[in-house]
């Protein structure tokens, strides 16, 4: 019979790294990176030059804005947590996210384009971003994260609630790390939660 290594409520969970991006600046908490940028495409180029992105993101130019920001955010957060990633090696890391609007703006862009074009055909490349999980999925694809992925929201959801849920997922699985993302257009943040007790970090209870 398989033995479950999960369901361990005693697992100690720490914040191993974190990153944030607002409309003009970005930063990380452990490595104390602080920088500014003009637009999201500039930020991507800058992070590539600084080797925060270890290899280019495929089709980055085609991503919607939130997906671009989410990828930059995750690159910063993984770097802050000293978690390396490779093109051909998947890692058992989960990613859950929230924001205030879901995919409403992406939905509007897709359907408006369809209506403007006479309601005869629509653009698949816009349709794929009409899911609230699409930006998280773009990040999972690039950074090869094969753990749980979902979006969670309510009008009164707090980031601490999301952290609690992420901790619950970590404790109930054999994963070592999970990313918790808030990806609003104006500001975004990503925390890397880890069960690795040997890693120096801030306890989140």
């Amino acid at each position: 019979m398989p033995r479950c290594c999960c369901k361990d409520k005693a697992k100690s969970i720490i914040v191993k790294g974190a990153a944030w991006i607002n409309q003009a600046n970005y930063g990380t908490t452990e490595k104390k990176i602080l920088g500014s940028y003009n637009n999201i495409d500039d930020l991507y180029v800058k992070l590539k030059q600084e080797k925060v992105f270890l290899f280019p993101v495929k089709n980055f130019a085609r991503f919607d804005f939130v997906s671009k920001m989410t990828c930059c955010l995750v690159a910063l957060a993984l770097g802050d947590a000293n978690i390396a990633y490779q093109k051909d090696c998947k890692q058992n890391i989960g990613i859950i996210g929230t924001n205030s609007q879901g995919a409403v703006e992406a939905n509007r862009e897709y359907f408006k384009d369809y209506v403007v074009n006479g309601r005869k055909s629509s653009r698949a490349n816009l349709f794929i971003y009409t899911l609230a999980t699409s930006p998280l999925a773009e990040a999972a694809i690039h950074f090869k994260l094969h753990g749980p992925l979902f979006y969670e929201s309510s009008f009164d959801i707090s980031f601490s609630r999301l952290l609690q849920d992420a901790k619950g997922i970590l404790r109930g699985s054999d994963m070592q790390n999970i990313l918790v993302v808030e990806n609003d257009q104006e500001k975004s943040a990503c925390f890397v939660l880890s069960v690795d007790e040997s890693v120096k970090g801030v306890s989140c209870g």
Partner: peptide, 8 residues
């Protein structure tokens, strides 16, 4: 729960 980490 899992993710393919492969394609949209």
């Amino acid at each position: 729960l899992s993710n393919d980490a492969n394609h949209m």
